[in-house]
């Protein structure tokens, strides 16, 4: 937890959960995908549900395009999403035991796809609580390296071979021997790490979610 979670970010009004946090939640998906997005299907829960005659929260849309919380383009995100060529869709859903400001994502990119559930938890803070059906916790408090393993055992070895120090490693087993490795650190994570990991056995995809600055 950092002071800039309490004072910050710079954002557009009126509600930090529905502008700054919404933007960061979707932007986390953009970061995790880390390749050109082809399709984004959103399941909108609680306060993000779209009511009759309404539209999807524009900050949720903006984050998928990679915009940050103080980016003026947020106000034009629906038009920019249309121009982007991304197949964007949404539906209202009810997620069990979910935070009031939750979204379910199904994201498809050029060579990688995933699903996730996350919430905008107040003051612009977010928590991603599930990726590909695996329960975990991803926030903006630290830099996170995400390793999507096809073979978790091999991927763990591949990850160890990087010799990273000073962070916390979490191994989350998934279906059919796969899973997700999270490495959380306050130190910088270079983008080259992902390319290196992806060349190693057992690793399907690797990407970073960066700490909120």
């Amino acid at each position: 937890m950092r002071v800039f979670e309490l004072v910050g970010p710079i954002m557009f009004g009126p509600s930090s959960s529905h502008t700054a946090g919404a933007c960061r939640l979707s932007r986390a998906m953009w970061q995790i995908l880390d390749c050109p997005m082809k399709k984004a299907a959103l399941g909108l829960h609680g306060s993000f549900r779209v009511h009759e005659g309404g539209t999807v929260n524009k900050a949720l849309v903006a984050g998928l395009l990679g915009f940050d919380t103080d980016d003026d383009r947020i106000n034009n995100s629906h038009a920019l999403m249309e121009q982007s060529g991304i197949d964007f869709s949404w539906e209202n859903v009810t997620l069990e035991n979910a935070h009031n400001n939750s979204v379910r994502y199904e994201i498809e990119g050029d060579g990688f796809s995933f699903s996730a559930i996350g919430a905008s938890v107040g003051g612009g803070m977010i928590e991603v609580s599930e990726i590909n059906g695996i329960k975990l916790s991803l926030t903006g408090d630290y830099n996170t390296l995400l390793v999507f393993a096809e073979d978790l055992e091999k991927a763990e070895k591949a990850f160890s071979s990087l010799g990273l120090e000073g962070g916390e490693v979490e191994c989350h087993p998934g279906k059919a021997g796969g899973g997700i490795i999270l490495y959380k650190t306050s130190l910088p994570l270079e983008p080259e790490l992902c390319q290196k990991l992806e060349s190693l056995e057992g690793v399907g995809h690797a990407s970073r979610h960066l700490r909120f600055d």
Partner: peptide, 13 residues
């Protein structure tokens, strides 16, 4: 409230 640029302290509200 008018969607102007502010700093969440700790929130927009």
């Amino acid at each position: 409230s008018l969607s102007g640029k502010v700093v969440a302290t700790p929130t927009g509200g």
